[in-house]
Structures are given as structure tokens and as C-alpha cells.
Design a protein around this nucleic acid. Structure first.
Lengths: 154, 154
DNA sequence: CTCGTTGCAAACCTTTTGCAAGGAG
DNA sequence: CTCCTTGCAAAAGGTTTGCAACGAG
């Protein structure tokens, strides 16, 4: 739904910058904006291949880098291996709760934290550019260790 | 100062676990506990070599891993390359303010954040194991890009 | 046609690990 | 002596990049 909007924004920016719209980029941006969860480069590669079989890893890498640079995607490196990507919602900033057992990621908004950090930064003579608040914990219910491939919305 | 205490704690744990006290481990733990700033494995290797020239990277790696497992060191992966290590002060938990320009790391304590996150986690049915609150910003004064400054690069 | 884009494979960087020689207990 | 440790070098695991062929405009 506003995956479509995001995709359009991406295309617009491409042409505005004199860069080209290609099947690969469309495929990558599409699966990314429609996924509804945090994706690694390999996740995205997998999904994109279903639409555009020939896509290569490097293209996914470069496209996601571009999306991140343009403020359309954010990169997260939670504890553990790879970088995960997530569409940026211009309206609301959110942070993450990560289960250390099953890896589930839950998003939450907490305005108080945002306010608090402004005060902390000011106290140390700094201007806030961004922040990261990650709470690592354990699901009290419904926690199951990571089994096979991360369950995609398929 | 209580670098000595920490070192002793480390030695005690070693013998308690039937592991051996060696010159390398002492050198590594010593420079680490005395540094007073965040160190990368290479920083530690460098410093340790001044005391015990033959130390190898693998030993630093394994020793720091051990310290982290034993709760004597914490590992941080701020935005950018390598993992940085810092002694854990059992008394107080703190978080970090990181300058995106010069890489300076300032520590701060903010009890309110701690309290807040318990509430957030509970709201989503999770029990907090640990957390990370990193504020990225820009120094308003005294900020100089990383030049020959020891240690912190980007 | 032109010049941005792509896939492949190699380069990189940091973190891990296998192994035979070395050393603490 | 016995095993834990060590340093070396190679393996891993992920991210970046060089390059010649490709293809959008």
C-alpha cells in the first residue's frame, strides 16, 4: 500500500538524480518496501530473485546503500552478524526490542526517551543527530528458537 | 586504581576455573583495565606488546572474549567497524554519547531510561536482559576530526 | 550512441579457529 | 609430566569494489 508510495518516491529520486530505473532496482525496492519486517541483504536478494531472477548480490548491496543514503531505509546492526534493513517511516521514529533467544524484533515508540536524550546530549554539549535504543530481552511467551529460514511473509 | 582490583578478580576467576595465569593474560588484562577508554582488539594488542612483546592477536582476542563472558568487560559495536571493549563497572550501568564527526565517546547515566525500558519491555511481554542506548551527535565545541588521535577511528 | 548499471569474482576487514610447539602447575 | 595456552596462519563471515559486458534513455 504505501509500499507503492515509497517505491514511487524512490523512482522519482532516481530520475531527479539522473540515475536509471531498472528492473533490478524496482524488484529490490518492491520486496523491501513490502516486506514488513527487518531484512538482511541476503533476505532481500532471495526475495528479489523471485521477481527478477538474475539479480546479483552486488546490486542489492548498492541499491540498499542508496536507499539508506537517501533516507528511505535505515540500517541496523543488532548484536550478531549482518546488517538488517528497514523502510524509514517519515512520520514516526521507533526503537527496537530484540529477543536474545529467538531473534524476534518488536518496534515501539517512546517519546519520553526522545525527550530525555535531548537533555542528556545538551548536558554534554552535543547536538543529537540520531540515536539507537535497543532493549535485549526474552519473550515471556511464544518464544521459539530460530528454526529454518526466517519466516517470510511469502 | 581499581584496575588492580579488576586484575585480581580476573586472576581469581582464572584459578577458580582451573585455567592458567600467564604473562600474556596479565599484560592484556592490565592494559585493558588501566586504559580508561574504549579499546579495540588492535589497540589492546598494541598496548599489551609494550609490556609483553610477544603477544599475538589471537591471544588478545581469546582473552577479551573470556573477560566479556565473565562479565568483566563489555563489547560495543558502535556504528563503524570494529568492536570496542570497556571494563564493566559493577556499580553503575551507563550508556554512550558518540560524536559522529570526531568519534569521541562520552558516558552518561540516566536512571530514567532504565526505568522506562522496563515498562516498555513489560508492555510487550518481555523481560529485559540488557540494553543499549546510544546517542549519536555532534560536539558543539572542541570537536576535531580524528587525526593522529590514538585509538578511536571511525 | 552514451554513460549509468549489472553480475561476477576478487579484495577487504575483522573475527574465529586448527594445530604443533611452548610453558604453567 | 600433563594439559592448558600461545602464535601463526588459514578459514570464515560479511561488506566493498574493479571491470567488461549490458541496456536505459
Amino acid at each position: 500500500m504505501d509500499a507503492a508510495v515509497a517505491l514511487e518516491r524512490f523512482r522519482a529520486r532516481l530520475s531527479r538524480d539522473g540515475r536509471r530505473t531498472t528492473g533490478q532496482r524496482d524488484a529490490i525496492a518492491t520486496v523491501f518496501f513490502e516486506a514488513g519486517r527487518h531484512l538482511s541483504l541476503l533476505d532481500i536478494l532471495d526475495l528479489a530473485k523471485r521477481i527478477s531472477p538474475g539479480v546479483g548480490f552486488a546490486t542489492v548491496y548498492r541499491t540498499m546503500r542508496m536507499l539508506a543514503d537517501w533516507g528511505l531505509a535505515s540500517e541496523h546492526r543488532f548484536d550478531g552478524g549482518q546488517t538488517l534493513y528497514e523502510p524509514i517511516d517519515a512520520d514516526a521514529h521507533h526503537d527496537h526490542l530484540i529477543c536474545v533467544r529467538c531473534g524476534r524484533v518488536v518496534e515501539y515508540e517512546e517519546p519520553e526517551v526522545e525527550a530525555l536524550q535531548e537533555r542528556v546530549a545538551a548536558r554534554y554539549g552535543m547536538r543529537v543527530v540520531s540515536h539507537k535504543h535497543e532493549i535485549y530481552g526474552e519473550c515471556l511467551a511464544g518464544c521459539r528458537p530460530p528454526v529454518g529460514a526466517p519466516g517470510l511473509g511469502d
